[in-house]
């Protein structure tokens, strides 16, 4: 559990970079403020979390079968 906590801190430590408003680039910055890019992030995150849960469940089932053998 401690390991996981340290891990979370490590990963969250880069969140503060959000605070930096990007320099004057005319890429998709407007997209990001009003263009709902967060929806895309949410979508792919949901897909990936789903896949991860799926993988974990396969892992768990395998563990059960391995114990039976």
């Amino acid at each position: 559990m401690k390991k996981l906590l340290v891990l979370m801190v490590f990963i969250l430590s880069c969140v503060n970079v959000f605070a930096q408003k990007s320099a004057q680039t005319d890429m998709a910055d407007a997209m990001r403020s009003s263009g709902k890019i967060y929806v895309v992030i949410a979508t792919i995150s949901i897909i990936f979390v789903g896949l991860a849960i799926f993988l974990f469940s396969i892992d768990r089932r395998l563990k059960k079968i391995e114990k039976e053998n």
Binding site: C14, V17, F18, Q20, S22, A23, T25, R32, I37, V40, I41, I44, S45, F48
Partner: peptide, 8 residues
């Protein structure tokens, strides 16, 4: 997934 799509 987040940083890759949002960061500069």
């Amino acid at each position: 997934l987040t940083t890759g799509l949002l960061f500069r």
